[in-house]
């Protein structure tokens, strides 16, 4: 059994983290300036999250109308570990656990923006972690 019970939880926590990022004082403006669309295809549970890095920044599940500039694919549990700051993306790419499609230069500019969001994500999942532990 993975960390997320269903796609709605992926949307709530991973999608929620991107929504929070839009309002992050340091990261938000830089993400909106990226001017690109990213699809992340998750497995277990299977779902697709579309993040529009523009003003306004939007995060939607399934059926998004935008053609992505970047597509990433990974297990939802991998995403959970990454956003906790416990998963090395380079190692994941080497092992084929994470796959990426799109302009490398754009991906390399986005990745450093994610690090300040690790505490935001850890805060988002705190309650779920506590429930799982009890």
């Amino acid at each position: 059994m993975g960390y997320f019970a269903n796609s709605a939880e992926v949307d709530k926590y991973i999608g929620g983290m991107f929504r929070a990022a839009a309002d992050h004082p340091e990261v938000g403006p830089q993400m909106k300036a990226a001017n690109l669309v990213m699809n992340v295809v998750y497995q277990e549970p299977d779902c697709v999250l579309t993040v529009v890095f523009k003003e306004p920044m939007t995060v939607t599940m399934e059926g998004a109308e935008y053609k992505p500039d970047i597509t990433l694919t990974m297990r939802a549990d991998t995403a959970d570990q990454y956003w906790r700051g416990k998963y090395n993306l380079a190692v994941g790419l080497a092992k084929g656990q994470v796959k990426a499609k799109g302009p490398v230069s754009k991906i390399l500019k986005l990745v450093p923006l994610t690090k300040p969001l690790f505490p935001v994500y850890n805060e988002l999942v705190k309650e779920k972690d506590a429930q799982a532990a009890s």
Binding site: A90, V91, A94, P112, K115
Partner: peptide
Amino acid sequence: GMRVYGLGVAFG
């Protein structure tokens, strides 16, 4: 899986 010393999270 290429990583580079001292270039942060984007490079491993």
